[in-house]
Design a protein around this nucleic acid. Structure first.
Lengths: 236, 236
DNA sequence: TGCAATTAAATGGTTAGACCATTAGTAGGA
DNA sequence: TCCTACTAATGGTCTAACCATTTAATTGCA
C-alpha cells in the first residue's frame, strides 16, 4: 500500500536539486554555479556536505570543477563519456571475455557503417580519405610502425561511429575499443598479409561510405569484423 | 615527447587506489572497508577528503555505504544499474533520442537472438514457452492488461539476452529496455492488431530458438524490431 | 529462564572555522 | 613596454567536535 519513506541525506537532496535544474534547462551548459561559500548558504548546509554533493555531480559528468579565481562549478554539455567509463568498469569487473567483446562488436559494426554511409557529410568523407592515406603510409613503412597502423585503424572505426550521429553507438564502441585493444595486439598473429587484408577491408568500407551505399557498407564492415574475429578463435 | 603531468587531487588518488584494488580482485564484493576514522589514517588524509573519495566510489557503483554500528563501506557486485542511470540522463538531456535507441536495438536484437538459439538449454526453452503462454493469456484478457503484456514482452527479450550468455549484451540491453519503455508506451499506437502482430513475432522468434535455428532467429528478431521501429517513425 | 526494554558503543552524517594551493587580474617598477 | 610581485577569489584540505542511525550487549521484570 505505502512505499517505505526514503530518508534523504542532505547531500543527496542537493544533488537532486541541481540535477533537476540542469535537466529542466534552468541551468544551461557553460553557466557557472555560485562559489561554494555562497552555495552552502543558499542550501543551508555546511561546505563539506556541499562538496560531497558537487563531487557526485562531477562524477555523473554534469559539472566540471575548476580551481583558481575564475574557477568554480561549471555546467557541462552532457556527453556519453560517462556511459563509456561505466561500461568499461563493467567489462573489466565482470571479466568480459574476448569472445563476448567480439560477438558484441559483430552486432554493431554493420549497423554503424550503414548509418555512416547514410549520414556522412562531405567533410566526413575527406576525413576518412585522410585517415585511409595515413594508414596506407604506415603500412608501407613496415613493421616498426605497425601499432601506429592499428591505432589509425581504430580511429577509422571510431570516425565511422561518429558519423552515425548516434551517441549510443559512439559511447558503447568507445568502451569496446578501449578494452578490446589489448586482446588484438596480443592475440592476433599480426603479419604483413594480415595488415594488408585489414587495410583492403578498410578501403572497401570507406569506398562504400563515400558512395552512400549503406547496404554495401554494412556487409563489408560486418564481413571484416567476422573474418578478424575468426582469426582469433580459440583465444581465451 | 612528454605527457603533461597530471596533478592528482588527494581524493582522486584514494579513488584510484580503491578502484584498482577492486578491479584486481584484492577487494572482493561483500567485503567491508575499514571504518572512515581508520581509513583516513591509512591514507594519511582528513576524513572530509576521504568522504569525497567514498562518495565518488559510491556513485560509480563500486561501494555501498551503510550507517550504524555494523555499517561502513561495502564492496558491491558491479551491475548495470549505473549504466541505466547514465543512459537515462542522456535521454532526458536529448543527447540520445528515440531514434538512436531504436537504431541501436536494431543492431543488437538479431545477434542476440542468433546466439540464444545456439546456446539455449532445455530449461531455457521451457522458460520461453512459459513466458509465451503468459503473454498469450494477457493478450486474450484484452485491453485492461495490456501493460502486463508489454512487460512480458520485455521479459522475453531479456530472457533471450540472458540466453546469449554474453554479459555485454545483457548489461547494455537491460539499460536500453529500462529507458525505452516510456517511449513505446507513449508513442506506439497500441491496439488489438498491433499486440497480436507483436505476439506472433514473439512466437516465431521463440520457435526459431527452440529449433536451434540461429539464422532464422536472427532474421525474425531483426524483422520484428525493424517493423515496430517503423511504426514509430516521425516521433521526436 | 525468557523476553522486552534500555543502554552503550560503533559507525556514518554534518557542522564550523581555519589554513593551503591555484589562478587571474592588477599595480608597480625596470 | 614588459616583466615581476602582489592581491584577491576560488577550490582543496585539515581539525575537532557533535548529531543520527544502527546493532549488540545489558538490564530488569515477569
Amino acid at each position: 500500500m505505502f512505499k517505505t519513506v526514503k530518508q534523504n541525506k542532505a547531500y543527496q537532496d542537493v544533488v537532486e536539486q541541481i540535477q533537476e535544474a540542469i535537466m529542466e534547462g534552468t541551468l544551461k551548459p557553460g553557466r557557472q554555479l555560485p562559489a561554494e561559500r555562497e552555495l552552502k548558504e543558499q542550501f543551508g548546509i555546511s561546505r563539506g556536505t556541499l562538496r560531497e554533493a558537487l563531487r557526485v555531480l562531477e562524477q555523473k559528468g554534469l559539472i566540471e570543477i575548476r580551481t583558481g579565481v575564475t574557477g568554480g562549478s561549471i555546467i557541462r554539455e552532457v556527453n556519453s563519456e560517462n556511459l563509456s567509463d561505466n561500461l568499461g568498469l563493467l567489462i573489466r569487473n565482470r571479466a568480459v571475455s574476448l569472445r563476448d567483446l567480439a560477438e558484441f562488436r559483430e552486432g554493431m559494426e554493420g549497423g554503424v557503417a550503414a548509418l555512416a554511409a547514410q549520414r556522412a557529410t562531405e567533410q566526413d568523407r575527406s576525413l576518412l580519405q585522410g585517415l585511409q592515406e595515413e594508414a596506407e603510409s604506415y603500412l608501407k613503412e613496415g613493421r616498426k610502425v605497425w601499432d601506429a597502423f592499428v591505432r589509425t585503424d581504430e580511429r577509422i572505426h571510431m570516425a565511422l561511429a561518429s558519423m552515425s550521429g548516434n551517441q549510443l553507438f559512439i559511447a558503447v564502441l568507445t568502451s569496446v575499443y578501449h578494452n578490446i585493444h589489448t586482446y588484438y595486439e596480443n592475440y592476433l598473429p599480426w603479419n604483413k598479409e594480415l595488415l594488408q587484408e585489414n587495410f583492403n577491408d578498410l578501403c572497401n568500407i570507406i569506398a562504400a561510405v563515400s558512395d552512400r551505399d549503406s547496404e554495401r557498407a554494412r556487409e563489408t564492415a560486418l564481413g571484416h569484423v567476422r573474418r578478424f574475429n575468426a582469426y582469433m578463435e580459440g583465444v581465451p
